[in-house]
Design a protein around this nucleic acid. Structure first.
Length: 307
DNA sequence: AACATGGGCAACCGCGACTAT
DNA sequence: AATAGTCGCGGTTGCCCATGT
């Protein structure tokens, strides 16, 4: 399913390098990695561990940077690529609203995801939505749209998913037996990476000090904890404050429940119906370009006016 | 059928921070 | 203390492919 697995990705093009004239000068290779290079790189790391990129580079005729990047973003056994889950999307939106383009920092909170992938997600998906709204990603308008429309909807979808599929396979499993770039199922290599795994055992430490008044979180009144478990994203214990703020995303004002705003929480049946409709709408969204409909714009205006 | 265009993604680059000598 | 080597981050590029004309 992954179109970009290097096996079929690289074989067709000799990459664009200029190796010819000074043959003996040992030009550095650039561009896409070949299967052989990947194999060499993994063997080296299996033997010598992570790091020491420059000595590795000498085996590969590539720069140390290139080797490091290839490993971190692609070959690493626990790296996850593609299919960003709803929970991850929500986290990205939330964390980006707090930290901006601190991709690496954001990535630390999404196990297995690389900064590069998150950055790409932001640029392709999020910025596209901004374009649809004809506003700048950094504008207040767009941030509000995310906060009051997009994120609540993500929560809705997550809730819906959790109620229909008791234990969704999609949501967790950061460390399934990973098929890596080369299509190999990496037997969770007995590589001891620099004395520890890349995602060290996380400890969702729960001292319930929800912490400082975050601009977003504090505007949200406490409500359901239906989605709470979805946000048990393992986070380094050093930053449990962030973790608990993120947890509170799931609490959103009732007035923001649906795009139309007419959702009545009193009726469970209606609620289900509404959510189903919403989900269908959202499921179509991935292939659909009019992510923001007229109602959205109107709704956004209401929000802006009342602030 | 052939070409143009844009999206999505992997990889590259510059630069600042860090480390070792 | 100075400096060379290395690492990591964020911005950017370029390539492939899907879609549109």
């Amino acid at each position: 399913m992954d179109v970009y697995s290097s096996a079929d990705h690289h074989h067709h093009s000799s990459n664009s390098i200029q190796v010819s004239e000074e043959e003996e000068m040992m030009e550095l290779r650039r561009g896409p990695w070949t299967v052989e290079e990947d194999y060499t790189l993994m063997n080296y790391i299996a033997k010598n561990g992570e790091g020491r990129w420059n000595s590795l580079a000498r085996c590969l005729k590539r720069t140390g940077k290139s080797c490091r990047l290839r490993w971190l973003n692609y070959l690493r056994p626990d790296v996850r690529r593609g299919n960003i889950t709803l929970e991850e999307q929500l986290l990205i939106l939330e964390l980006h609203s707090r930290w901006g383009n601190r991709w690496s920092k954001i990535a630390q909170h999404l196990p297995g995801r690389t900064d590069n992938e998150i950055k790409n997600y932001w640029r392709t998906r999020v910025q596209k939505h901004a374009k649809q709204l004809k506003c700048d990603v950094n504008s207040k308008q767009f941030k509000d749209a995310m906060r009051y429309l997009w994120m609540p909807r993500l929560v809705e979808r997550i809730q819906a998913a959790s109620s229909t599929t008791p234990i969704g396979p999609s949501s967790t499993s950061a460390n399934t037996a990973t098929t890596n770039a080369i299509g190999q199922v990496i037997p969770h290599m007995s590589v001891n990476i620099g004395g520890g795994l890349i995602n060290p055992s996380f400890t969702p430490d729960n001292s319930s000090t929800a912490a400082s008044s975050d601009s977003f979180v504090t505007q949200i009144s406490p409500a359901s904890d239906l989605t709470h478990e979805y946000y048990n994203y393992p986070v380094n214990s050093t930053s449990n404050q962030d973790y608990y703020q993120v947890n509170q995303i799931s609490n959103r004002p009732d007035s923001l429940t649906t795009p139309s705003g007419y959702f009545n929480p009193g009726s469970d049946f209606q609620a289900m119906e509404e959510q189903n409709k919403l989900n269908q709408w959202f499921d179509a969204e991935d292939t659909n370009d009019n992510l923001w409909n007229v109602e959205d714009i109107w709704f956004l205006q209401q929000q802006l006016n009342s602030m």
